[in-house]
């Protein structure tokens, strides 16, 4: 008899945990794909692709429910302790956060038909780079979960600042554009909401990273110091637009 460090004596427990990890990887992959597709739909004004993102969000919602059911059942039946307990609680919370990420992607897709003059909206050129980083954060936070990698989780938390910085630049550029081109105000507002959605996606990836850090170490992630942000107040006014 010696501690093995990996497998449980009750093998069925490991198979529950593995099944959950598989589903978390899947919901993560789907939401990452939803971000990429919604951005492609926006760039190409592809209404069919945008509609597909909206339709596929249902799959993400279903997956979240299945993850929650199995987590709930595993906690009830196996009475997990220590790192097992932390991982299951993290799984439960991560599935909810990733589902929200899917909602933001869906919200971007829903705005695609409303942006018809993309070529005249200068600040839109910043969105592809911003979305690339936001999806990287989503992917890395979920990779960190799969590998129980607290360092990678910290890294995601740190890199979220880049997404915030993008948002702040786009915010200023859009406001300037609105002042100079009052006839574009409606479409520019949608553009701003899209940037806001991407910024929220970054925040949610950070939330995932924080849970990964906790699951891996048992400690809360050290706070990232946030510089005072001129757009914070306006952000609050804009609030969450996703549904």
């Amino acid at each position: 008899m010696s501690p093995t460090g990996t497998e449980h004596t009750v093998k069925a427990f490991d198979s529950d945990i593995n099944e959950l990890r598989g589903m978390v990887a899947e919901i993560g992959g789907r939401s990452e794909q939803a971000i990429a597709k919604s951005m492609r739909a926006l760039e190409n004004h592809d209404l069919v692709l945008a509609a597909e993102v909206v339709a596929e969000d249902k799959l993400i919602d279903d997956l979240e429910k299945r993850i929650d059911d199995l987590t709930f059942q595993t906690i009830a039946l196996r009475a997990p302790m220590a790192d097992d307990l932390r991982e299951l609680i993290a799984t439960f919370k991560i599935s909810g956060v990733v589902e929200r990420i899917g909602d933001y992607a869906k919200n971007i897709a829903k705005r695609v038909p409303l942006i018809t003059q993309a070529h005249s909206l200068g600040p839109i050129s910043l969105l592809p780079s911003m979305s690339k980083i936001a999806s990287e954060l989503v992917r890395d936070s979920l990779d960190a979960f799969a590998r129980r990698d607290a360092d990678l989780a910290m890294e995601v938390n740190r890199r979220d600042q880049i997404v915030d910085d993008f948002y702040n630049s786009i915010f200023r550029a859009v406001i300037t554009h609105m002042i100079e081109n009052p006839k574009d105000i409606g479409e520019a507002a949608h553009l701003l909401f899209i940037a806001k959605n991407l910024e929220r996606i970054g925040d949610h990836a950070t939330n995932v990273a924080e849970m990964v850090y906790f699951a891996a170490t048992g400690e809360p992630m050290p706070e990232r110091s946030r510089g005072d942000n001129p757009t914070d107040l306006l952000d609050d006014a804009l609030s969450d637009e996703a549904d």
Partner: peptide, 10 residues
């Protein structure tokens, strides 16, 4: 301790 309480013991 962790191995014992999480059921990974022997």
């Amino acid at each position: 301790t962790r191995d014992y309480i999480t059921g990974r013991y022997g």
